[in-house]
Simulated scan of single mutants.
Amino acid sequence: MDETPKTAIRGMIFYVLALLVLGVLAGAVYTIYGHPADPSQQPAAETIPQKAPAPQ
């Protein structure tokens, strides 16, 4: 097998790091702005009906 050029390896590492940074930034933006604009609005977790525990 031929040896992989070092520039290709550097490029792949740069690509993976760039995706990781973009993912972290997207997660931060979602965390900050991903909540309802109206504080009186009910959170989504509270609108999902909970199953009653099974009788024993």
Score class of each variant (00 low, 15 high):
M12E: 15
S40L: 05
M1L: 15
A52C: 01
Q50C: 00
P55W: 02
P39G: 05
F14P: 00
E3H: 05
L19I: 15
P43C: 03
K6Y: 12
Y30T: 07
A28M: 13
A26P: 00
P36T: 05
K51P: 07
D38V: 02
R10T: 08
G34P: 00
A8Q: 10
A18W: 09
P49W: 04
A44R: 12
P43L: 07
I9K: 06
A26C: 14
G23S: 12
G11L: 03
Q50S: 10
T47K: 14
P39T: 04
D38A: 03
P53N: 06
T7S: 14
P43N: 07
P5V: 09
V21Q: 01
R10P: 02
P49L: 05
S40Y: 03
Q42D: 02
Q56V: 01
M12T: 13
T31K: 11
A26Q: 09
V24G: 01
T4W: 10
Y30F: 14
P5H: 08
R10W: 06
A26L: 13
P55D: 06
A8C: 07
T47F: 01
M1G: 10
P43A: 02
I32V: 14
T47Y: 01
Y15M: 13
G27Y: 12
E46A: 15
I9S: 03
V24S: 02
A28R: 05
I32S: 13
T31A: 10
P55H: 03
G27E: 04
A52N: 01
I9E: 07
L20D: 05
A54Y: 00
I9W: 04
A28P: 00
Q41S: 07
V16H: 03
T4V: 15
A52L: 04
K51C: 03
P53K: 03
L20T: 14
Q42R: 12
P55N: 07
F14N: 04
P36N: 07
V29C: 03
I48A: 11
I48C: 06
K6S: 15
T31R: 11
G34T: 05
Y30N: 13
I48Y: 06
R10A: 09
T31F: 11
P53Q: 02
A37I: 01
F14G: 02
D38Q: 05
I32H: 08
V29N: 09
E46V: 13
T7Q: 06
D2S: 11
V24T: 10
F14S: 09
G34M: 04
G11T: 09
H35F: 08
T31W: 13
P36Y: 10
Q42S: 14
A26M: 12
I9Q: 02
G27Q: 03
V29I: 15
I48W: 07
A45M: 04
